[in-house]
Simulated assay, not measured.
Amino acid sequence: MYSRFLKRPQDMILATVSLLVLSPVLVTIAGLIKWKLGGPVLFKQKRPGKDGVVFEMVKFRTMTDERDEHGELLPDEARLTPFGNKLRSLSLDELPSLFNIVKGDIAIVGPRPLLVEYLPRYNDEQRRRHVVRPGLTGLAQVNGRNRLSWPNRFALDVKYVDNVTFLNDWKIILQTVGKVVKKDGISSDTAATMEAFMGDER
C-alpha cells in the first residue's frame, strides 16, 4: 500500500516544501559557485532510474573543467576544489536533485542512481536495484556510503527493494540527517567519491 500509493505523494510534498524553504540557500550557493567556479552552476548527468529508464540528474557543480594536454578531464581528486569539497561534505551539492524528486525521476529514499555505463555490468541480483525509483538517500548511504565495497552496497540496495515501508523510509531519512551532520562516508578510502564499478566482484 505505502510503496504503490503513498510514497510518491509524500515525496512530492516533502520535496516541494523543501525547495520553497531552502530557496534562499539554493540562490546563495548558486551565486557562490558562479563566483568561485564560473558557469555553469549546475552539473547534469544521465543516470538510470526505475526499470533502467535514463533521466538527467541535476546537482550543484563542485569541480573545475581542468583537462590534461590530450584534452581529457583530470581525475576527480585534481578537479575537486576546497569549496566544492565543502559543498559535498554537507551534501549541499545534492539540493538541486529535489527538482528530480518533484518530476518523479527519483524518490527521497531508494538505491542511489549510478552511472548509465554500469547497466550492462550488473548481474541479475544487482539489477533488481532498478525495480524501484532510485533515491536521494538510501540504505547503503546510512550504512557506509562511499566507503562500502560494491558487493555490500548492492546487497543493501536489494535489501531496501525488498523492504519498502513507511517506517523504513523515515528511519533512513533521520539517519541521513545524522550522517550529513557527521560528514560520514563522503569518500572511499582511495578516491574522492567512489571507485568505478567494473562488474560482478563475487
Rank of each mutant, 00 (worst) to 15 (best):
residue 44 K to A: 13
residue 13 I to N: 01
residue 24 P to M: 01
residue 37 L to M: 01
residue 33 I to W: 03
residue 28 T to F: 13
residue 44 K to S: 14
residue 15 A to M: 04
residue 28 T to Q: 11
residue 22 L to N: 05
residue 23 S to I: 09
residue 33 I to H: 11
residue 30 A to R: 09
residue 53 V to D: 13
residue 46 K to V: 15
residue 52 G to Y: 10
residue 47 R to T: 08
residue 20 L to N: 03
residue 33 I to Y: 09
residue 35 W to H: 12
residue 12 M to F: 13
residue 32 L to Q: 12
residue 40 P to E: 08
residue 54 V to A: 05
residue 26 L to R: 03
residue 31 G to F: 05
residue 25 V to K: 01
residue 24 P to N: 02
residue 32 L to C: 12
residue 33 I to T: 10
residue 11 D to M: 09
residue 14 L to M: 11
residue 53 V to N: 14
residue 14 L to I: 14
residue 39 G to K: 14
residue 15 A to I: 00
residue 44 K to M: 14
residue 19 L to I: 11
residue 34 K to S: 11
residue 11 D to Y: 10
residue 8 R to I: 09
residue 45 Q to H: 12
residue 34 K to G: 12
residue 44 K to N: 13
residue 44 K to C: 13
residue 53 V to C: 12
residue 31 G to P: 05
residue 50 K to P: 08
residue 18 S to R: 06
residue 10 Q to Y: 14
residue 8 R to T: 07
residue 11 D to V: 07
residue 16 T to W: 08
residue 31 G to N: 04
residue 54 V to H: 04
residue 7 K to L: 08
residue 19 L to T: 03
residue 39 G to C: 11
residue 14 L to F: 14
residue 20 L to A: 13
residue 51 D to G: 11
residue 46 K to M: 15
residue 31 G to R: 05
residue 22 L to A: 06
residue 38 G to Y: 06
residue 38 G to V: 00
residue 49 G to E: 06
residue 11 D to E: 07
residue 47 R to S: 10
residue 33 I to N: 07
residue 17 V to F: 14
residue 31 G to W: 02
residue 27 V to M: 13
residue 8 R to S: 11
